[in-house]
C-alpha cells in the first residue's frame, strides 16, 4: 500500500521535471549525443571534432545569448544576421586600413549599438511593429555592408588578416577553442541573469505581459530598449569574432544567420511571437543540437541536402513539444 501510494508521487515529480522548457531540449541533446556516439563512434566526441563544431558555434552562441533577451522581452530582432555582417565589414575595413584592433573594436560596437538604438527608438518609443522595424534595419544594414565591402575592391570581400587576432581567436585550452568555452560561459551567465536576477525577471515579465508588467511598476520601455541594445551589441561582438576567426569579411557574412539562430533558439524553447518564454541554456542546447545533427550527417558522409530537412523536422518537433508541455497556442 505504501509502495503504490509512493509511485504516483515519484511519477509526478519526474513528469514535472521532464515538462520544463530546458528539460525537453536537454533530453534532445542527450539523444543527439547518444546517436552520435553509437552511430559515428568515439570520434564524434573527440576534442578535435568538438573543437571544429565549437569554433563554428561561437558566433551563433554569442548572437543567441544576447538576442534571446530581446525575444524574452517580446521584441524579436530580425536584424541580427545583417548586424553581424555590418560589424564584420566595419571592423575589417578598419583593420585593413591599419587601425589597432583595440580601437577598431569599440568603434564597431558603438556603431552597432547606435543601430540597435534606432531599432529601440522605432519599436519602443514610436510603437512600430518589431518585425517590420527590424526587417527594415536588416535591409539597411545589408546595404551598408555591401557599400563597405565595395571599398575593399571587386572581390566583394575585405581581407583583414591580423596575426594577433587570429592567434587569439583560434587559441585552445585542453584542445577546445577558448572562444567556444567563453561563449558557453556567456550563455550560462545569461541564464543566470534571466533566472536569478531582478533584471531577468523584469525582462520575462515584460515579454509575458507588458501591461501587467507596467502595472507592477516595471519600466517596460527601458527594459525593451536594454534588450534591443544588448541584441545589437551581441551581434557586433559576433561580427568582430567572425573577422578574427576568418581573417576577412564578405558581403555574404551573416546572411541567413537570423534564421539559423532563431530556429535553434525555438528548438531550445524560445518563442518568436510570445515573449517571456525560454532560457539561454535552452537556446545554447538548441544550437548544440542543430550543430550536432549537422555534424553527424557530415561525418557519416550523408548528402548534405538532408541537413535542412532534419533541422526543419526538429523545429516542428520542438513546436509540438512546446504544445504538449502546455505552452500557449498560437494566437
Amino acid at each position: 500500500m505504501t509502495i503504490t501510494s509512493a509511485q504516483p508521487d515519484r511519477f509526478e515529480i519526474w513528469r514535472e521535471r521532464l515538462s520544463g522548457s530546458v528539460a525537453s531540449i536537454t533530453i534532445t541533446f542527450i539523444i543527439v549525443m547518444a546517436v552520435g556516439l553509437l552511430w559515428v563512434g568515439p570520434r564524434f566526441v573527440s576534442t578535435s571534432n568538438i573543437g571544429i563544431i565549437g569554433s563554428f558555434l561561437v558566433v551563433p552562441l554569442i548572437v543567441g545569448a544576447c538576442a534571446g533577451f530581446a525575444l524574452l522581452a517580446g521584441v524579436v530582432d530580425l536584424s541580427i544576421g545583417s548586424m553581424v555582417g555590418f560589424a564584420s565589414a566595419l571592423f575589417a575595413i578598419q583593420i585593413a586600413g591599419g587601425m589597432d584592433p583595440w580601437i577598431a573594436a569599440p568603434l564597431t560596437l558603438l556603431a552597432c549599438v547606435a543601430m540597435g538604438a534606432i531599432n529601440a527608438l522605432a519599436i519602443v518609443h514610436f510603437g512600430a511593429d518589431a518585425i517590420a522595424a527590424t526587417l527594415g534595419m536588416l535591409t539597411a544594414l545589408r546595404g551598408m555592408t555591401w557599400v563597405i565591402t565595395g571599398i575593399g575592391g571587386a572581390s566583394g570581400a575585405i581581407f583583414a588578416f591580423h596575426p594577433g587576432l587570429f592567434g587569439m581567436a583560434n587559441s585552445r585550452v585542453l584542445g577546445l577553442p577558448v572562444l567556444f568555452l567563453l561563449a558557453i560561459v556567456l550563455s550560462l551567465i545569461a541564464a543566470g541573469v534571466v533566472t536569478k536576477t531582478r533584471l531577468g525577471r523584469h525582462v520575462q515579465a515584460v515579454g509575458g505581459d507588458d501591461k501587467a508588467a507596467a502595472r507592477a511598476g516595471i519600466p517596460v520601455a527601458r527594459v525593451r530598449t536594454f534588450a534591443l541594445l544588448l541584441s545589437a551589441f551581441g551581434a557586433g561582438v559576433a561580427g568582430i569574432v567572425f573577422v578574427a576567426q576568418l581573417g576577412s569579411a564578405a558581403r555574404a557574412t551573416g546572411f541567413g544567420l537570423e534564421f539559423q539562430v532563431y530556429a535553434a533558439l525555438m528548438i531550445g524553447g524560445y518563442s518568436i511571437l510570445r515573449g517571456g518564454v525560454g532560457n539561454p541554456v535552452g537556446g545554447m542546447l538548441g544550437l548544440l543540437v542543430v550543430a550536432g545533427v549537422s555534424n553527424i550527417i557530415e561525418l557519416k558522409a550523408i548528402s548534405p541536402y538532408y541537413t535542412n530537412i532534419i533541422v526543419g523536422a526538429l523545429l516542428l518537433g520542438a513546436v509540438l513539444l512546446d504544445r504538449l508541455r502546455g505552452g500557449d497556442p498560437y494566437e
Binding site: E16, R17, S19, G20, S21, V22, A23, I25, T26, F29, I30, M33, V45, I50, L176, I184, L188, A191, T195, N279, V281, G282, M284, L285, L288
Partner: peptide, 18 residues
Amino acid sequence: GHKTYGAATSAGALAFGL
C-alpha cells in the same frame, strides 16, 4: 525549479560529453 533542474542536467550532459 524546472529551470534549475534543467540547467543542471544540461550542464551535466555537456560535461559528460566533453
